[in-house]
């Protein structure tokens, strides 16, 4: 393996100074599950690694309706957070199936999005949850919507001297549910063929449904049980991973659904539209046609799962096999 120096600053300022000093020769390292692998695979060859492990507080999770996470929050910490499971379920769905326990114990959310793999599992949920990220350099500090963060495969707006310091997820509207589905070939240690995250806010003060929803039923059956409730979609965000060079929002699909009464036919159309917006490609990990087809299937399913989570908030279990 290529040799490098390994620096462990104790404050954020110290880290920013080092980053400024070494410029392109340095690379930040969080958990290292991407960085060390990339060095071993000779994809990158930094002379210096600057570790963020010793900087206090970067692994904090604060919740006061909205959620603030430091970049060094591990996937395992997210997986274990009841607050996140309950309020930002899509994110729990994502970390639950990310890599393995060993990886999740070390890998961080900041690292996951900064590496900016099109397959990054937390990216689509963060897009669906409307997250913003705070970036800091010696000179500037700015907060941007996560949509603007990704610029290409492995590329972000992060400049050489920037550190991602915070991820903020706004307080969801009342009656909001979210869900993420990682479409993968096995139950663990996998990358998604496709990732689909949906957030739905229903326009109704109290949505009640006596029937136990089962997503194995056709959508219309489920919606039928809500018919008397006239469920409207107040807000929706649909995000896709591995469907384009960067994690993306399906904006047109969202427009179709926003402020509309939710119906079987409409969800069908929404999913079709999302599939049209996407630009999936062929790779050894999956074929474009299949990815596109799965968008049609999984957007619907995640929308249903989101509705289910509004109705049965106490049962925010991971959506195992949904058929």
């Amino acid at each position: 393996m290529k040799k490098f120096e390994y620096l462990k600053p104790h404050t954020l300022d110290e880290a920013l100074i080092l980053l400024d000093q070494y410029g392109g020769r340095a690379r930040l390292i969080a958990g290292g599950t991407d960085v060390i692998v990339m060095i071993k695979q000779k994809e990158i060859s930094p002379d210096v690694l600057i570790s963020l492990q010793e900087i206090p507080d970067l692994d904090r999770i604060n919740y006061n309706g909205s959620l603030s996470m430091g970049p060094m929050v591990t996937h395992r910490a997210i997986e274990k957070s009841e607050i996140i499971r309950k309020n930002f379920s899509a994110l729990t769905d994502a970390v639950d199936v990310l890599g393995s326990v060993q990886i999740r114990n070390v890998a961080t959310i900041g690292g996951n999005i900064s590496t900016a793999a099109p397959s990054a599992d937390t990216a689509a949920p963060l897009l669906a949850l409307g997250a913003r990220v705070k970036l800091k350099s010696m000179k500037t500090e700015r907060t941007i919507p996560i949509e603007q963060f990704f610029t290409g495969p492995g590329e972000t707006v992060l400049q050489k001297d920037d550190i991602l310091t915070e991820i903020i997820i706004p307080k969801p509207l009342p009656n909001t549910g979210s869900a993420y589905w990682k479409h993968q070939r096995r139950g663990a240690l996998d990358l998604p063929i496709l990732g689909v995250a949906v957030l739905l806010s229903l326009d109704k003060a109290t949505v009640t449904c006596s029937d136990l929803l089962c997503t194995a039923s056709p959508i219309s059956t489920v919606l039928h049980s809500l018919e008397g409730d006239e469920v409207f979609c107040k807000e929706v965000r649909i995000a896709l991973g591995v469907a384009a060079p960067t994690p993306m929002r399906a904006i047109d699909a969202e427009k179709l659904l926003r402020s509309k009464k939710i119906s079987d036919e409409l969800l069908e159309e929404v999913a079709e539209t999302a599939a049209k917006e996407a630009q999936p490609r062929d790779s050894i990990r999956g074929e474009a046609w299949y990815r596109r087809d799965m968008i049609k299937v999984l957007v619907k399913r995640m929308a249903m799962k989101s509705i289910e989570r509004v109705l049965k908030p106490e049962e925010t279990v991971f959506p195992v096999r949904l058929w």
């Binding site: 070939r185 096995r186 139950g187 663990a188 996998d190 990358l191 050894i284």
Partner: peptide, 16 residues
């Protein structure tokens, strides 16, 4: 060989 690693060669895990 395009998938010379355990990530892309899909051997079953305990979950499968």
């Amino acid at each position: 060989v395009m998938n010379p690693n355990f990530l892309d060669y899909k051997m079953l895990t305990a979950k499968d």
